[in-house]
Nucleic acid binder design. Structure first.
Lengths: 266, 266
DNA sequence: ACTGAATTTCCATTATGTGGAACTGTGTTT
DNA sequence: AAACACAGTTCCACATAATGGAAATTCAGT
């Protein structure tokens, strides 16, 4: 059937009921203020009846919750699932000791992040001190073009691939140092390739610097990065450079462990 | 149709497609070792074709991922969603400063947890030091009967309600101090009510003690607890008791703030 | 290269989700 | 106090999307 073909093509990428449900979860999780039924109704464009049933199912599943004042908020089941997903994550488990070593060597905050599309997603961190509370960071996505780990990871790809990945990305002006366009980024990437590691000099957050190195294992389709982060005032001349030795050592050690973990798969 | 009726009755409470999908996510997230297609096939009892499509949808949605070696692992989207759900959680935001105050007053690890059914789910923590890495805890569920926060929260309910909640709970023997049955727990709960706060003397983890207080706001259907936790060797005579004043102050402050947040709802 | 197992694709059937409309409940205005 | 408007819920004929048996394909071990 031609019609069927067209249909299939047009709907390519949608995942039916599940996709709609997850879109709602996402909407609720993203909302700045708690959403009430009508808010969701307006934003989702679904008919009343349909939406109501979908939300009821989501509430029954614990993915979202209906507050006492009629507002839908993200459900605790998301936390439970993520908690287990995180603690069982092989790559994270494997990298953890090396992050600790790197932290001990530098005394600063260490991050581990995965590159996904044009974003990095933070997988783990070892903090200098609990002073500023933000282990919220884990699970967070940030643009690759303005983070040390992101740029380091991107630099392992060739320019064409980078252009493709960042095709739809809007370069946001976070600070005055943030790359404004793809050309500026690619120039930086070129230096990163020669140097072997990336800097982030207050490009994402004012007052925050870091050095980052990439972790890539092609056979595993793994592309990630680690970084050492510190407040700018603490990063004098040559300080970031001094961290590169332990940084690169840690990155290589993680790479090695990941590759070692390849063969003894059950 | 009789058959249809029976079917509907039998499936009462299930959430159709979504429920099946989430059951699979849960299975994958819970698995000790990464599961391959056949493993999931055997455990789920679904027909091949069906299961394959369900998994494909889940992968497309990013809820699970298909590893290079054919193993299904939890997807990063779970982390992203949970991260946002957590950082936007109103109760957590509101409690955070009080946790910090309590931590400053005691110098020990402070926990915030919600009671859900017969479990507590950890929502936040302020750590004494990053020495032992386990912010993994956030999102974790633990049995209420063997944790300080759990017992404190349970103690605000009457015995009948507690019995109902713990009806299906199997009392696991974590340490020699763990309550072995509901009667033992209820005796403890009685003391907790009189005392106004709960102890956990190595009942869940050997070598870990805590004092905990409940946070309850009936109008919000909120039932939670906070605790101050420390290794047993550091908890000499009267140490836990010394923490109760700031503990109870923090619990009350959080309660007050939650109630204050009631009226100015848009 | 061959064999058996694991995985993926296909498609007629039917259960499942859809959405318009009618209903209920709640709080605000005249 | 009655009337009104608006948010939320329920219902049911219908269309779509999920189902699952079986065949095709890919993969791993010899």
């Amino acid at each position: 059937m031609v019609k069927q073909m067209e249909n299939t093509a047009a709907r390519n990428g949608d995942t039916g009921t599940l996709g709609k449900a997850m879109a709602l979860v996402e909407m609720v999780a993203d909302a700045a203020a708690p959403l009430r039924f009508t808010d969701i109704l307006n934003r989702s464009g679904q008919p009343r009846g349909t939406l109501h049933r979908q939300l009821r199912h989501l509430v029954e599943e614990g993915l979202i919750e209906l507050d006492t004042d009629g507002a839908y908020v993200p459900g605790l089941r998301l936390l439970r699932l993520a908690s287990r997903a995180w603690s069982r994550n092989e790559f994270r488990q494997l990298a953890a000791p090396h992050l600790q070593v790197l932290h001990d060597a530098t005394g600063e905050t260490v991050h581990l992040a995965l590159l996904r599309g044009a974003d990095v997603i933070y997988l783990d961190k070892v903090e200098a001190r609990q002073a500023v509370r933000m282990h919220s960071l884990i699970g967070n996505a940030s643009p690759a073009y303005c983070t040390g780990v992101g740029k380091a990871a991107l630099a392992t790809l060739d320019d064409a691939e980078i252009r493709t990945r960042l095709d739809a990305v809007k370069f946001e002006h976070f600070t005055d140092s943030t790359h404004a366009d793809i050309e500026s980024l690619l120039a930086d990437v070129k230096e990163i390739r020669q140097r072997g590691f990336a800097f982030d000099l207050e490009e994402h957050q004012q007052g925050i610097c870091c050095v980052a190195a990439s972790i890539r294992v092609v056979e595993q389709n793994l592309l990630a990065g680690i970084s050492v982060t510190a407040p700018a005032y603490r990063v004098g001349e040559g300080v970031l450079e001094a961290w590169t030795a332990p940084l690169l050592a840690a990155a290589e050690a993680i790479c090695r462990d990941v590759m070692a973990g390849l063969s003894p798969r059950r």
